[in-house]
Simulated assay, not measured.
Amino acid sequence: GRGWIYLDEQRRRYRIGIRVWETAQSFAYLDSLAGRAEPHLRAARNELNETVQLAVLDGIDNVYIAKVEADHPLRLVSRVGMRLPAYATGLGKVLLAHLDQTDVEARLNGVTMRKFTQHTIATPQQLFDRIKEIRERGFGEDDGEYTPGVFCVAVPVRDATGRVVAAMSCSIPRVRLGEGPAHRDHLVNTLTRHCQAMSRDLGWQGDGQ
């Protein structure tokens, strides 16, 4: 009934249903997206020498599909395939910020917003306020909202239609983050350049994020 398998009534045999094909197509798309992202992630990592990641949105979670590690011994504990609540990460909030408000509200329906640290967004209204800021600024942040002591900035990646299909982030331990906004602005500007380059590879022809 869900389309995963199909029963041939005459032969009384089962075969793969359309949902399996649809799922395979989604996997192939994400695999291709990760491959297209690889040179841009590496270029950003080489420039910043910090961990750079790419994620997509699935429901109310962001799922990491590519990652390039920094050379520092102190690193972020994450992996490709890992999923985290979007409201608790810079990547996730950027992805949510490029959805319609009604879509964000629908995704949050019935979700208990767990506090992972004292900085985690705890209510839908706090999230709505934060993603409004992201829409205005063009980038998102995560300052110890999921992992204490880790600061993250994230920027959207667009496809040929201008739709945000992924987000790229740079994560850095707080101990390596300089005082004041200068270091953060450098991270944002660098990520923005590489996200724009990746977006152009995907066919986007816009001027800004």
Rank of each mutant, 00 (worst) to 15 (best):
L96D: 10
P39H: 08
R36N: 06
K67Y: 01
M82S: 04
R193W: 06
L202E: 03
L30S: 06
D185Q: 12
S171T: 07
G140M: 07
R158M: 12
A66E: 09
I134N: 11
H72Q: 13
E47F: 00
Y64S: 05
N46E: 14
E47C: 02
P39A: 02
G162Q: 08
L7R: 14
G178H: 11
L91F: 03
T51L: 00
V153L: 14
A44H: 00
V157G: 11
P181M: 04
A166W: 00
T51G: 05
G180I: 04
T102S: 15
T123P: 15
A167Y: 06
I18R: 12
Q101I: 10
L74E: 15
T89E: 08
L48D: 03
D201S: 12
G180V: 05
T23I: 01
T117Y: 11
Q205G: 08
Q101R: 15
V77G: 11
R45W: 07
L74M: 13
F151E: 07
E69F: 00
A70R: 13
R107D: 03
P85W: 07
A167Q: 01
H186R: 14
T147N: 13
G110A: 03
K93E: 13
T147F: 13
K132M: 04
G92F: 06
L48P: 00
L91D: 05
A160T: 06
S199N: 08
P148G: 05
G162D: 01
R12C: 05
S169T: 02
D129N: 13
N62W: 01
T117E: 07
K93W: 12
L33H: 02
L74V: 10
I60T: 06
L177C: 04
R79Q: 14
W4Q: 13
V111Q: 15
L48C: 00
T117H: 06
G138A: 08
I65V: 14
A34W: 01
P148K: 15
N109G: 11
R184F: 02
V188P: 07
E141T: 15
D71G: 15
C152R: 04
E50Q: 03
P39T: 05
L96T: 06
R137T: 07
L30H: 04
Y29F: 07
P39S: 08
R193P: 03
N46W: 02
R75G: 09
R137P: 00
R176D: 02
R107A: 13
L108Y: 08
G149K: 14
S169Y: 04
W21L: 12
G81M: 08
L7F: 10
R12L: 09
